[in-house]
Nucleic acid binder design. Structure first.
Length: 442
DNA sequence: GTTGAGCGTT
C-alpha cells in the first residue's frame, strides 16, 4: 500500500497527492506525471525554515527523516518553471480544436501483481490523468487476477505519457502497451526514445535529465545495469527525440552520441513499418540502430512522426505561414542548432518561455530556451500552438538542403497513421521534390 | 494455496 505525498508545483498552489512506492520512495516519474519537467522536490523545513531538497537517487525520491508529511514543491530546471498544467492544457485544447481529437485507445497493462485489484490499478493510473476505465482480467472461476488488465485515459496526452515509461504497480514493474489482440505485429507506438551512446559511468540519471530536459519533457531515463556504456532517454515529444538524433552532445564533459532507438530483432530501415513492430517493451527490447540508413535522416523521421503521431495530417496543407511557401510545398522544417531565425520549430511567441508547446517545455525548440530567437513559427501559425488557428504552414523559409517537400496528405491518425496499421503512410501529396514524404516510415 | 509471457466472457 502506498502513502500519498502532497506535491505542488508552486508553494501557492493546491497540492496534488501522489502515491509512493511500496518501499516508501516516491518516483520522480510519478511527480513528473503531474508536474512535467520537474526534476526534484524540495520542502520547507519547519525548524530551519529553509528549503531543503529531497534526496533523489536513480529516479527515486527518498523521504526526509520526518517522512512525507510536508507539502513538497517541485523543482524545475532554471527557467523551466511552469505551473503544473496550464501550458499542458492550453496546448492540448488548441491541438484538439484544430484536429479531430486525438483519441485514446484501450491500453493493456502487463505484469500486474496477482494481488492488484481494479481499485488499485485505477488508483495508480489516475495519478497520470483522468481514467475512463480500469479493469483487471480475472479467471471467472477462481476470481484470481490473470496478471494483466486494461485501462483507458480521457486525454491523449496522458496516454502518450503513460506509454512512454515503465510503471511500478504494487512493487512490480509493469508495461503499458497498445493492445494487439489481432495477432500480428502489433502496435508499436513511437514514444520518443533515443539511444545515448558513448556514455560514461559517471553520468547519472539526473545528469541526463538535467541536460536533456532542456530540449523537451523527458518521461523516462534508463541506464542498463551493469553499466554498458549507453542509456535510453524517452521524450514526451517524438519530434524532440528525432530532432536530437544523430547529434553529439557534451554531458558532464563527455561527448555522448544520440541516435535512434529501434526495437531489437528487426532491421526495418526500409520496411515502412507497416505494422509497427513489437511492443512497447522494456528497455531491453531496444537496441541501437546505426544512423546510417538512407531513410534515417531526422527529417524523414520527423515527417513521418509528425504526421503520424500528432495527427496533423489532414490539415497539413503547407503554406499560409508567415514565411510560408504557399501551396503544399513549404520547405521542410529545419532544425536550428542555435535557434536561428529560420527555425521552423521556434514557436511564434518569441520568449524563451513559450507556453505553446505541446509538452509544456521547449518541446519544439531545437535549442535551449535561452537561445530561442524571435523567429516566427511556421509550425502552428497563430498563437504559436501546435497548429493553431489560421496558418497551418509547416514549411516556410527554412528548407532542408534546398529541397522542398510537402507534409500534407497523410492518411491520418487513429486507425491508419498511427495506432493500428502503421504510420509510414503518408501519401506524399506535397509539392516539390517530395523528398521527405515517402511512406517508408523510418 | 503454485505462475510471470502475454492481450480483453460482456
Amino acid at each position: 500500500m502506498s502513502y500519498f505525498v502532497q506535491v505542488t508545483g508552486d508553494e501557492n498552489e493546491e497540492p496534488i497527492e501522489i502515491p509512493t512506492e511500496s518501499d516508501g520512495t516516491l518516483l520522480l516519474s510519478s511527480v513528473e506525471a503531474q508536474f512535467p519537467g520537474a526534476t526534484g522536490l524540495k520542502y520547507r523545513h519547519p525548524a530551519s525554515r529553509g528549503l531543503r531538497g529531497v534526496r533523489l537517487h536513480e529516479g527515486c525520491l527518498h523521504p526526509p527523516d520526518e517522512g512525507w508529511k510536508f507539502v513538497f514543491v517541485c523543482s524545475f530546471p532554471k527557467e523551466n518553471k511552469r505551473k503544473s498544467d496550464d501550458t499542458l492544457e492550453n496546448s492540448m485544447s488548441k491541438t484538439q480544436r484544430m484536429e479531430k481529437k486525438l483519441q485514446c485507445s484501450d491500453l493493456v497493462v502487463l505484469g500486474l501483481p496477482w494481488t492488484t485489484t481494479e481499485k488499485e490499478l485505477r488508483a495508480y493510473f489516475s495519478t497520470f490523468g483522468e481514467l475512463l476505465m480500469a479493469q483487471v482480467k480475472k479467471d471467472p472461476k477462481t476470481g484470481k487476477s490473470k496478471g494483466f488488465g486494461f485501462i483507458k485515459f480521457a486525454d491523449y496526452e496522458t496516454q502518450l505519457r503513460v506509454l512512454g515509461q515503465r510503471h511500478m504497480v504494487d512493487g512490480r514493474h509493469c508495461d503499458v502497451r497498445i493492445p494487439n489482440s489481432h495477432g500480428e505485429a502489433g502496435t508499436r507506438q513511437f514514444n520518443g526514445k533515443v539511444f545515448i551512446g558513448r556514455l560514461t559511468e559517471d553520468i547519472s540519471h539526473e545528469d541526463l535529465r538535467t541536460y536533456f530536459g532542456k530540449y523537451g519533457e523527458i518521461t523516462d531515463v534508463y541506464i542498463p545495469k551493469p553499466f554498458r556504456g549507453f542509456a535510453f532517454i524517452t521524450f514526451l515529444s517524438p519530434e524532440v527525440a528525432q530532432a536530437l538524433c544523430d547529434e553529439d552532445h557534451i554531458v558532464k564533459g563527455t561527448s555522448v552520441h544520440i541516435s535512434n532507438a529501434t526495437p531489437k530483432g528487426s532491421n526495418q530501415q526500409n520496411q515502412g513499418r507497416g505494422g509497427p513492430g513489437g511492443g512497447q517493451g522494456g528497455p531491453d527490447n531496444w537496441n541501437q540502430q546505426g544512423p546510417g540508413g538512407q531513410n534515417m535522416n531526422p527529417l524523414n523521421m520527423l515527417a513521418a512522426l509528425t504526421q503520424a503521431s500528432w495527427g496533423l495530417l489532414g490539415n497539413m496543407q503547407g503554406g499560409g505561414g508567415p514565411n510560408g511557401g504557399g501551396g503544399q510545398s513549404g520547405g521542410g522544417p529545419r532544425f536550428n542548432q542555435q535557434g536561428g531565425n529560420t527555425g521552423n520549430f521556434n514557436q511564434a511567441g518569441s520568449g524563451p518561455r513559450d507556453n505553446s508547446n505541446f509538452g509544456g517545455g521547449p518541446a519544439h525548440a531545437r535549442s535551449p530556451p535561452s537561445s530561442q530567437s524571435t523567429g516566427a513559427s511556421n509550425y502552428g501559425g497563430t498563437g504559436g500552438s501546435y497548429g493553431g488557428s489560421g496558418s497551418t504552414g509547416y514549411g516556410g523559409s527554412g528548407s532542408y538542403e534546398g529541397s522542398s517537400s510537402g507534409y500534407a496528405g497523410n492518411t491520418g491518425y487513429g486507425n491508419t497513421g498511427y495506432g493500428n496499421t502503421g504510420w509510414g503512410s503518408s501519401s506524399g501529396s506535397g509539392g516539390g521534390a517530395g523528398a521527405y514524404n515517402h511512406g517508408s516510415g523510418w
